[in-house]
Design a protein around this nucleic acid. Sequence first.
DNA 1: ATTTACACTGAAAATTTTTCCAATATGACC
DNA 2: GGTCATATTGGAAAAATTTTCAGTGTAAAT
Lengths: 152, 152
Amino acid sequence: MTFDAIDKKLLQLLQNDSKQTNKELSNKLNLSVTAVFERIKKLENNGVINKYVALVKKEKVEKSFVAFCHIKLSQHIQEYVVQFEKEVTNLTEVLECHHISGDYDYLLKVMVKDMEAFREFMVEKLTNINHIGSTHSMFVISEVKSTTAIPI
Amino acid sequence: MTFDAIDKKLLQLLQNDSKQTNKELSNKLNLSVTAVFERIKKLENNGVINKYVALVKKEKVEKSFVAFCHIKLSQHIQEYVVQFEKEVTNLTEVLECHHISGDYDYLLKVMVKDMEAFREFMVEKLTNINHIGSTHSMFVISEVKSTTAIPI
DNA sequence: ATTTACACTGAAAATTTTTCCAATATGACC
DNA sequence: GGTCATATTGGAAAAATTTTCAGTGTAAAT
């Protein structure tokens, strides 16, 4: 699909606050409520807007400890790759898993309660997955910026 | 605040789909609509739920290229740190910036159109920030998993 | 036993979303 | 430039949802 300037503005607004009413949005966009409604439906139907979610503050739910884990597979056999990706996806502590270029194969974002919980995660879950060659972990000291809003 | 099992379930549901009506939620939780409403309000007022957002599919808005950039500062003077963090926060291409342990000081998640746009971002924006010592970039080959839902 | 605090329910009120229709704009084609 | 087909818009009505409210039940504290 194709976007005009209003669609872009609308996406920016919804990426920052999806609980705004169509009336509020119509004011900000100088449109009628129906026009806003139709534009949003179009963005949803075309898959531009993927889903609507509530973002939870990790400190409030005892998941303040964030780590990034580099992972190298022992061998790059397709069967191993598929199995690793499947198993890592099933771990709820792993919020993100990216297959990346460079010295390691994967970069994971892991969220747990504290260092102790992380140790447990590594020992009992992550390194239990087959075919992992080596890992290297980096711990988040402070979160400088974190947004889900894609620049549009 | 303190959570019971219903609050946890509610947070899980809202982290995956915040557009569900309270009636739908009330069915899944075996509660009245009002009870759901009040629990959600409590979670919002206590800052557990931070915000509600629309998640946009990056492929649909021509931002398919994702990179992680390691950054080392030239010196760790507080003034440099503060200035770097402020300037990097202002870059819309940078969705995340984490101060991390390890060989580098920061890990950035960057989202742009393609490799060409990334080159431009590096040359014209990122390395224009003062006090950067060195950088090391990793490119995302494929996204194995990506969620905003914190395990609760 | 009484009070207090808190979460719950169901119904009513307020607001928002969604539908519907007519009017207007837009773009392709002649 | 004019005409057709298509898409977008605005306003009003209908449908659905959110929000408020009053009353009930439960558990802890006095």
